[in-house]
Design a protein around this nucleic acid. Structure first.
Lengths: 349, 349
DNA sequence: TCGCGCTATGTTAACGCTAACAGGTCAGAA
DNA sequence: TTCTGACCTGTTAGCGTTAACATAGCGCGA
């Protein structure tokens, strides 16, 4: 890999035949050497490797996959790359797949069901060894494709619903309930919700449902709400916080649907000299690492993103190794609540 | 796409032959219908489409690509997904490719040359229609592969050096010089540098080189330096700023190699009641949008990330359309300096 | 009436590789 | 010697699709 290949005539793409001719053995033997499969004498191996290197030969996986009907790709279908959550999932996935032959291929849906369907169709047409796809909600056609693909499917992030095959995630409904309980236990009563304007983000919706459900049991409901879309989340967090507090000044808690707008809210409150968490408590969702440097630590709930990626990849990898094993794995991780500095603990009012 | 396919026996993967038998025409005609190529009567087309939908047939691109020796994939090779810069480049790339047949496939190198080489080899083995790769520095073997691949290659982010084929980026050396000039013009004299411990981030290195070069012309040099690796950039920015200011208290400017640590530094200074930009000026690099919500706007320089992605994708797309056209395009974008609130303008000391 | 040119469909031969099997050689056991 | 089996290498036949060419049917002008 360190020697510089010599490319005499860069016209026709190189094939096994070229290497075979250059090294004086059959194509099959070259193939064997290049894949480390089957017995080949050291002398032959050396000859072949040298020839391949000198020519700068790169095997054609298209042909190889067609012949062997094995494709070392794993389709990963996610809604977005522009907040930190999916890149972290990707990190977990790569971490595991790096130790295997498998390779992730990413498709982005922008939270649009029809895009998801199209991306999935495109991905499946490459006959991957498995699919990792965000969420449990898909169009009927997408579900049908996934069901009929005959490969391992892992639906990630969410476990509130029924999976096609395997699933790894957290219960967002439960996460919402848990946060509501913590807020109520801390004695807050007048609670505002701030989130994204995204009816298609089912996980945010489920957290909200769990949240309101627990409030309802305590005879409370969300006192005010504010939504945004687009723009810098941090700036939006500030704006929305200002808006909601202006409209409903007696709110004593603000629950944000993600840490970024939560951080914006926190900065706003500190700016305005609002006592956090005494006067107003704050909480976000996600446990984004780079917020560690903020003046005060935002209460949040870890969504286990890296771990979700790892587990999903493990399922695909283990099934790729022994196809008949497993199936329908359901891994529900437990998000941990971090009180940070913005959600007081059990202080009596 | 909206009808639910019926999968009678989910065993052997479906092929053109199945659709051909189900619809009573030849495989070739089915292929023509599915690709919208050649003349097919409306009646036949309808029959075929119905059969394909009902079976839930998904074409096999592996076979298709092998037969047509056309692959609609574009390899995108980048160092990382975990800071915001490359996801933004990806956004630009997708934006353009979404209007074409082409599809990006991402490979991540973690700033390691040997990983880059391996990822590139893997990608090329799928015979993509083009390669978009970050940086101009590659191993000899990687350069040889790129040179011999016979497909469009666009090296992005950087234009300080010589490209294999096309290149789109900014001059980081120039960016460093420009920032140095702005800082000197504002009257700062005792300048500290804070960056990542990454000898392999050539672009950061070039910025630094340009920066020191301009200082040198003014008879100055960097008064102190501090480096970090790993961890939360925001938190690290705080720590490093504290450290460097403790060690060299008379610094009057801090230049950060990225906005995230710069933001940490800003927060630290605000915490400590340091007058910014009077006592100490600050600047980062990148123009990361979500920092908009900070209490004060950090001076920074926009690296034109989305635009770089767009231009690179445009080059690949246009060459895919008309192969003989173009070649060796060199697009050097001009990063714009944003003074923000942390770099005073031309105030005399 | 013939045959030209059009449209709609079919036939054949790759594309570059690998699975499966078929030798061919050579050492040591019978 | 002959046989056995380990080791190495080669041959053959696809994998599922598409390019290129072949053909069938049909309307129409001369």
């Amino acid at each position: 890999m360190t020697q510089v290949p010599i490319q005499p005539l860069p016209k026709r793409p190189l094939t096994l035949r070229d290497v075979s001719e250059a090294s004086g053995v059959s194509e099959m033997t070259v193939s064997r050497v290049l894949r480390n499969r089957g017995d080949v004498s050291d002398a032959t191996r050396e000859k072949v490797l040298t020839a391949a290197r000198e020519l700068g030969y790169v095997p054609n996986k298209i042909a190889g996959s067609l012949a062997s009907s094995r494709v070392n790709l794993v389709a990963v279908i996610i809604p977005s790359l522009s907040n930190m959550v999916f890149p972290e999932v990707m990190t977990g996935i790569s971490e595991i797949l790096d130790d295997t032959e498998l390779q992730p291929v990413v498709g982005v849906t922008h939270y649009k069901p029809e895009r998801e369907e199209a991306v999935l169709y495109e991905m499946l047409s490459w006959r991957p060894s498995g699919v990792i796809i965000a969420g449990l909600e898909h169009t009927d056609a997408a579900k049908a494709m996934l069901g009929a693909a005959g490969i391992p499917i892992v639906e990630i992030m969410d476990t509130d619903g029924s999976a096609i095959d395997a699933a790894v995630g957290i219960s967002h409904r439960r996460a919402g309930r848990k946060m509501a309980k913590a807020i109520l236990d801390a004695g807050y009563k007048k609670i505002g919700f701030l989130g994204t304007k995204m009816p298609l983000d089912h996980r945010a919706r489920k957290r909200f449902e769990g949240f309101t459900e627990t409030l309802a049991k305590a005879g409370l409901e969300v006192a005010d709400q504010e939504f945004y879309s687009g723009g810098s989340a941090l700036a939006k967090g500030r704006e929305m916080t200002e808006t909601i507090l202006a409209r409903t000044p007696d709110l004593d808690f603000l629950y944000y649907s993600n840490d970024m707008i939560g951080a914006g809210g926190l900065l706003h409150c500190l700016d305005k000299g609002i006592d956090v968490p005494g006067e107003v408590g704050l909480a976000g969702f996600n446990g984004i690492e780079f917020l560690d440097g903020l003046p005060r630590q935002l209460a949040t709930m870890d969504a286990c993103r890296v771990e979700i990626g790892r587990e999903a990849a493990r399922i695909i990898a283990s099934r790729a190794e022994s196809p008949e094993t497993g199936g329908k794995e359901l891994i529900s991780l437990e998000p941990s609540l971090d009180f940070g500095d913005t959600l007081k603990r059990l202080k009596k009012l």
